[in-house]
Every structure is written in C-alpha cells, then in structure tokens.
C-alpha cells in the first residue's frame, strides 16, 4: 500500500496539469475583439431606416446618383482635358440640420476617384492654402528651388452648387418626408449653367 503512493502522486499531478493546460487553452481562444460584446460593428452601406429624418442612406444615394450623372454629362465627356471644378455651397432649405458639406465631400471624393475631373481649392479650404503658400514663399525658411511661388494657382473652370429642400406632411397616423436635392454645374467664366440634376427621396413612417 505504502509503495503505491509515490507512483500515484506524479500521475495525478500530470493529469491535473494537463486538465489545467486544456482549460487555459480553451479559455483563451484567440480573438481580436476587446470588450464584453455590447458593441457591434455594422455595415456602413446598410439601408438606414431607423427614423425618417435625413440619414446615411440618403446621403450615399444622393452622392452616388449625382456623381454618376455628372460623369455622363457633355461637360466631362466632351472635354479635351480634365475640367477643373470647385465646390461652392449646397444650401440646406429643409427644416432639419443636414451637413451639406458631407454630401459635397462624398461627391468630390467619388468624382476624384473616377479620374475624370480635377478639383481646385474651395472657399473653406482657401485660408489653409494661402497660409501654406505664404509660409513657403515669405518665411525665408525654405530652399528657393522647392518653395512654391505665389500667383500660380489655377482658377477653376466650373463650380458645383446646389440646394436640398424638403416637404414634410403629417397626419394622425403618418409622417411623410419628401427631399429634393438639386446640383448645378456652372461655367465660371460665362456664367452658363452647363449641367443640372436632381435626386428625389420619399420616406414615410407610421406615427
């Protein structure tokens, strides 16, 4: 009886260590997620139908429709060189807060990615542009052959501007919102409206 004890002890130790190793291995299954699972990432391209206020799907659909339409316009397809465009204001004429700059940013990004047009610095970016030019040309800190000269900025051929309007109707059981986004491309030198398109969206919800 006495002789068996020294043999069983290492065997138990070995078994228990294997058990612990197994538990540790299964308990720490590699996962790149930190957190207790309350937060989930969703699809940024999903149809957002949480409320009938202006949402991400509206912004994405407007930007996509306007970009594709503009890419088929004569101004771009018949131009010998890539036209230089600047973004002007898109007025928000609805009763709700809409970041119209976000819409024009998306349009500019998609048009830029298509490679069909170039963009000149627009009004909100002008301060940064002149600051940088002045810093390079007037501070005396830069090599002469690398500092950018004043007076060589390119003027845009066209400006993009537009507006977003809405009509809201409510009954005891329904709320209906109609959005209309209009975008215009204007020849800066001649003042001629060269291209225009609109996107309509209707959203209805039960109250």
């Amino acid at each position: 009886m006495k002789s068996t004890a020294p043999h069983t002890k290492p065997a138990w130790l070995l078994l228990s260590s294997l058990f612990v190793t197994g538990c540790v291995t299964t308990g720490t299954t590699p996962s790149p997620v930190v957190g207790d699972g309350n937060v989930q990432y969703g699809d940024a391209k999903a149809v957002e139908a949480v409320t009938n206020e202006f949402g991400s799907t509206d912004l994405q659909m407007i930007a996509e429709d306007m970009t594709r339409s503009l890419l088929q316009s004569r101004v771009i397809t018949e131009s010998k060189s890539r036209p230089l465009i600047t973004i002007a204001e898109v007025k928000n004429k609805t009763s709700e807060y809409i970041d119209t700059r976000s819409i024009t940013d998306s349009i500019r990004t998609q048009l830029g990615k298509s490679g069909a047009v170039r963009f000149a610095v627009d009004i909100p970016e002008m301060q940064n542009q002149t600051d940088e030019l002045n810093r390079q040309s007037q501070s005396g800190l830069y090599k002469k052959n690398t500092s950018k000269k004043i007076g060589r900025m390119e003027g845009a051929d066209y400006r993009l501007e537009g507006n977003i309007a809405s009509i809201v109707k409510k009954s005891s059981s329904l709320k209906d919102v109609y959005y209309k986004f209009t975008l215009n491309l204007i020849n800066i030198e001649s003042g001629v409206l060269e291209w225009s398109d609109e996107k309509e969206i209707r959203k209805t919800s039960k109250r």
């Binding site: 391209k45 149809v47 799907t57 996509e64 594709r68 890419l71 998609q110």
Partner: peptide, 26 residues
C-alpha cells in the same frame, strides 16, 4: 470600386420596373 450603398426600391403589385446604373469608372 468600393462597396456601393444598398438602395431601396419598391415594386408595386404586378409592376415591371427598370433599374439603371452607370459605372463609376471606365
């Protein structure tokens, strides 16, 4: 091209409807 957003469309009862698209890049 990157992922496009999903777009909703309602087809009325017994309706035939067109969906048109233009490629974003040549």
């Amino acid at each position: 091209w990157g992922e496009e957003p999903w777009k909703p469309k309602t087809l009325y009862g017994k309706q035939k409807a067109f969906i048109n698209a233009i490629a974003p890049t040549p």
